[in-house]
């Protein structure tokens, strides 16, 4: 290692020699493989094989010399490292296809069965070769023509700038970002769906949810409200209107108890202020107002809602009890 590191010129020459040698070797190998063994059926592109072999040979030589140089100089692939590894991966794939192809050609028994696959492989092979060549040349040219200028202050900055530029170029060439984006959405497509099918399924509601208002009764059926008008006083939206009179049995009761749903902001202050726990906010919130005037909840309606929601209210309170 030291030896080669001290003599960069020699290493350079050696790399070039290896490049030329392995290129020619592989070219000859591919050519002989194609020409000496007579395929029973026509190969895919009869006259492109030479061309094919040339590109394969060049790529192969290039990859070997690349790897060799970095091994000899013991330098990690630093500048364009991500793409360097991508290149190596492509080379690996290419190598595999090449091997498969050769095995295929030399094995006569399997030939009939595997030939179509061989065709596919040879096509991909060509493709990978071109891709590798292009990537490699872009990287080499990038290192050569856009080197990081060595000024004292901003070497690192410039380096990263050039690196970004190169990476952007290669990414753009391979439409890398687009493919990752598509992959991302493809992944989400098979995720579990988060839809809640509303009328059939409902979102869980907190026991403290402040929804529709209601008036409660005692278990014996007597309404709780004592017409103290605290709720009317506390209501920040002035949604409550109460009129009261003495009932025949002498107790004070409301004669009118209207809540305007349009004004009410569901703050729940009325519930908090009520001394007899009469007015409450229930967890019911799926309601509609179909006609004008329906938005006024009269006393009867409020009591009816209270009757309806009593079991739910009791349950909510029980659930909430530990936290009160």
């Amino acid at each position: 290692m030291k030896f080669f590191q001290q003599k960069p010129m020699l290493t350079q020459l050696l790399t070039i020699a290896v490049f030329v040698g392995s290129s020619v070797l592989f070219l000859l190998l591919t050519l002989t493989a194609w020409y000496t063994i007579d395929l029973p059926t026509q190969p895919l592109y009869p006259d492109t094989i030479r061309y094919h072999a040339l590109i394969s040979g060049l790529t192969w030589g290039l990859s070997i010399s690349f790897i060799l140089k970095h091994l000899l100089l013991n330098e990690p692939p630093h500048l364009y490292s991500k793409y360097y590894f991508a290149l190596l991966m492509i080379v690996g794939l290419y190598f595999m296809t090449q091997i498969c192809l050769l095995c295929l050609i030399f094995s006569t028994d399997l030939r009939a069965y595997l030939q179509p696959i061989g065709h596919i492989l040879s096509d991909f092979n060509l493709y990978f070769s071109i891709l590798t060549l292009v990537t490699a040349s872009v990287i080499i040219l990038g290192q050569r023509y856009w080197p990081a200028k060595k000024t004292k202050q901003n070497t690192a900055k410039r380096q990263s700038k050039h690196k970004d530029h190169m990476i952007r170029l290669i990414k753009r060439f391979l439409i890398w970002d687009f493919l990752t984006g598509l992959g991302q959405t493809a992944k989400t497509m098979f995720q579990k769906k988060k839809t809640i099918q509303f009328p059939e399924e409902k979102i869980p509601v907190s026991p403290r949810f402040r929804g529709l208002l209601a008036l409660r009764r005692y278990p014996n059926g007597e309404e709780r409200c004592i017409a103290c008008k605290l709720c009317e006083a506390v209501c920040p939206a002035l949604a409550i209107t109460i009129e009261a009179k003495v009932r025949s049995d002498g107790s004070r009761r409301t004669t009118r108890f209207d809540i305007d749903m349009f004004k009410c902001i569901n703050c729940g202050f009325c519930e908090e202020s009520c001394p007899v726990d009469s007015i409450v906010v229930t967890s019911e919130h799926h309601y509609v107002v179909r006609e004008r005037g329906e938005n006024i909840l009269t006393k009867d309606k409020l009591l009816a809602i209270g009757d309806m929601c009593e079991p739910k209210l009791a349950q909510d309170r029980a659930n909430d009890q530990p936290y009160r």
Binding site: T185, T188, M189, Q191, K192, K193, T195
Partner: peptide
């Protein structure tokens, strides 16, 4: 449908 599936809906 595809839009919904990509967005995790039905």
């Amino acid at each position: 449908k595809v839009a919904a599936y990509i967005q995790g809906r039905v």
